[in-house]
Design a protein around this nucleic acid. Structure first.
Lengths: 247, 247
DNA sequence: TATGGTAAGCGTAATTTTGACGTTAACTTT
DNA sequence: AAAGTTAACGTCAAAATTACGCTTACCATA
């Protein structure tokens, strides 16, 4: 993170709103940031994973680099959603100071391009994240964040919802094999609604891209559910270009 | 446009994909750019309206400023859709030279945030645009453009289509008063499909936000159509948060 | 003045989709 | 063995979609 080691472009950064699903809740991965407050005392708050881009680096590359450094993961779902460029978006003393501390440069203004990412939280990548002072915070328990990151998370959630309405990307936050019910609770968490399990099943299976496996749940105190897997090939072949207007 | 006159931020620019509707075709407003080619001869091609942001300027502000300078219009539909930041996105000699000529600076790399805008082409704003060497080009007749602007237009069209599926913004490209059929041809042009007039009417009028006026068409060789107007208040009150998944 | 062409605007009828809910099956826990 | 839970199947009415038929009101031309 020390800019003196790398030739950064101090005008442009990327920030990642990384979503995950744990204990049936939608979570965001946030990093603890330590800084010196106005009384000269050490304090901490939370920020989004992000970084300045380097001199000749693509935005997408900077985002996936950030993700990799934080989680150890490659090739995960990552989509640009908005660029925040208000000249006063970062104007608090503690934020300016933190930039100076981490880059060694006096930075006045940064335009940041935000990405959202979907991750299947696993033990290994969670441990990896914890080592980097990151932790999964419930989306509706997010405290005041550093910079304008609260606004970015909010907008990111809206974009996630919109994306999920138009393409089946929910499975990106689940293990390879998952039950229909698990997918349903994921949708419920993201849209903050209750859905009817029978109708959800009907609707999601009508599209053919979820294939049932032979394997069932085990050890559950009820009729065990079959596991399913997303099949990208089927999805590509069967997706219809619906021209249905929603207004 | 000469940077020596204004304190620009030479790292970040905005570009506007300005859509309009003329003779039942979807058009994009492009500017003729003159440059000196590799043989030292004057040549010209087309580019998107855009500009570097100034030192303390918001991205949205830069975009609407660009729009105002080009069309004379204020308060028109304008929405950010994507930021292009590939380090090699501008690497042709003629493009680099053109930057040098217009800014007086040697510029290596620019990240640009793209907006799309919807305009009701009128005589007055078209004249205004022509004075600035701009002209309305049919979306499926677009030649090779300067910089990576071809790619930007393409992505802009996809975002326009997506936006139009989720909110009734088509009227932004029509006069205050318009017929249902005109709106239909607009949808047909944007999505490049044929629609059934009876079903389109049914669907669009089911939402209550288009209100019929007393005025009819005149001078047409068929039953004259009533004019309609978009009513924002009704739209805000009646829009429903549809949670319908499209996949 | 009559006739033909055209799009407006009304309607109908079959099909598909949605939403609410009933029911049995298959597992664990007590 | 009984109770509790969710899976997975099915039913039914209402709503939305889709494909059309038809009459109306205008202009153009004969």
């Amino acid at each position: 993170m020390n800019a003196s080691l790398r030739p950064i472009n101090p005008y442009i950064s990327v920030d990642c709103v990384i979503f995950g699903f744990k204990t049936n809740k939608l979570k965001v991965l946030l990093i603890e940031r330590e800084y010196t407050d106005e009384n000269g005392e050490r304090a901490s708050d939370l920020k989004l994973p992000g970084d300045f881009i380097t001199r000749m680096e693509d935005l997408d590359h900077a985002a996936s680099r950030t993700l990799k450094e934080l989680t150890g993961l490659r090739d995960i779902f990552l989509k640009q959603f908005y660029t925040f460029g208000h000249p006063e978006r970062v104007n608090r003393k503690i934020d300016m100071n933190w930039w100076f501390d981490t880059t060694g440069m006096t930075i006045h203004r940064v335009v940041t391009t935000a990405y959202f990412s979907l991750i299947n939280i696993s033990e290994s990548n969670e441990e990896f994240a914890i080592k980097n002072n990151a932790s999964w915070i419930d989306v509706d328990q997010i405290p005041i964040l550093a910079f304008d990151h609260g606004e970015i998370v909010e907008k990111g959630l809206l974009h996630l919802q919109n994306a999920l309405k138009n393409e089946p990307i929910g499975f990106e936050m689940l293990p390879e094999k998952f039950t229909i019910r698990k997918l349903q609770t994921l949708y419920e968490a993201i849209f903050n609604v209750k859905l009817d399990n029978r109708n959800f099943r009907k609707k999601i299976l009508k599209a053919k891209h979820l294939v049932q496996l032979d394997e069932k749940q085990a050890g559950v105190a009820h009729k065990p559910a079959y596991y399913y897997r997303f099949n990208k090939t089927i999805y590509e072949q069967t997706k219809k270009e619906s021209l249905g207007f929603n207004f």
